[in-house]
């Protein structure tokens, strides 16, 4: 199966739409809230400092951020969801509730790092971290205390949550050239290749290869 080359978009085209007359008020308000700094989940004890540092290291491998998206606070948003109990309306019956699941999963990941490489996850080289994460994703892992949690299911939940936070952010939507939030006037032409002037085009010559 061939893979098309990955394209890139010039920075800022989407963010400039926010607050313009191309966007309705409810959409503008929602995106401005998203751009605001994540209020810290204040006084919560779901994850401690050490677990948050571990989560940050994992997030950096699963959803690596560039300078362009660095302002997206993955860990802050993730933690706030745990503190506020924000879910997606369902969970695998085999897994415990989110807070217990992620505390247990992160602890088991660290224990796996120790079993495989003799160090904590945050101390490992990126390639070692990736190897460890691939193993957890595959569901085959070291005999450490997962306390009844299926490693592959936990990995899926962790990844899906981080991805959900990342691509909900206007900076990540800017990165992929999504202009659907320009909703004030509708789309008169919707066929292949149809484009309004405010819909970004890929930057010519900046294909990354697959």
């Amino acid at each position: 199966m061939s893979h098309p080359p990955s394209v890139t978009y010039a920075s800022g085209a989407i963010v400039r739409l926010i607050g313009s007359d191309l966007m309705t008020e409810p959409t503008t308000a929602a995106l401005l809230r998203r751009l605001a700094p994540v209020s810290d989940g204040a006084h919560s004890t779901i994850l401690d400092e050490r677990q948050l540092a571990l989560l940050a290291a994992v997030a950096a491998r699963l959803v690596p951020q560039t300078e362009r998206t660095a302002a997206i606070d993955l860990v802050g948003s993730f933690h706030r969801r745990l503190v506020e109990g924000t879910g997606v309306g369902w969970r695998y019956a085999e897994l415990p509730a989110a807070a217990v699941m992620h505390r247990t999963g992160l602890a088991a990941l660290n224990a796996s790092a120790a079993a495989a490489f003799g160090s904590e996850f945050v101390e490992l080289q990126a390639a070692q971290q990736d190897e460890l994460l691939r193993t957890v994703q595959s569901g085959k892992t070291w005999p450490v205390a997962w306390r009844g949690i299926d490693p592959a299911m936990w990995f899926e939940e962790l990844l899906a949550t981080l991805v959900d936070i990342f691509y909900a952010h206007p900076l990540a939507q800017d990165d992929i050239g999504f202009a659907g939030m320009a909703d004030a006037h509708g789309w008169p032409d919707v066929g292949l290749g149809a484009r309004e002037v405010y819909e970004p085009e890929p930057v010519p010559g900046e294909q990354l290869g697959a």
Binding site: T24, P26, T27, A29, A30, L31, R34, D164, A168, G180, M181, D183
Partner: peptide, 8 residues
Amino acid sequence: DFATDEEE
């Protein structure tokens, strides 16, 4: 009340 924003 409706934004063109999935999370909202």
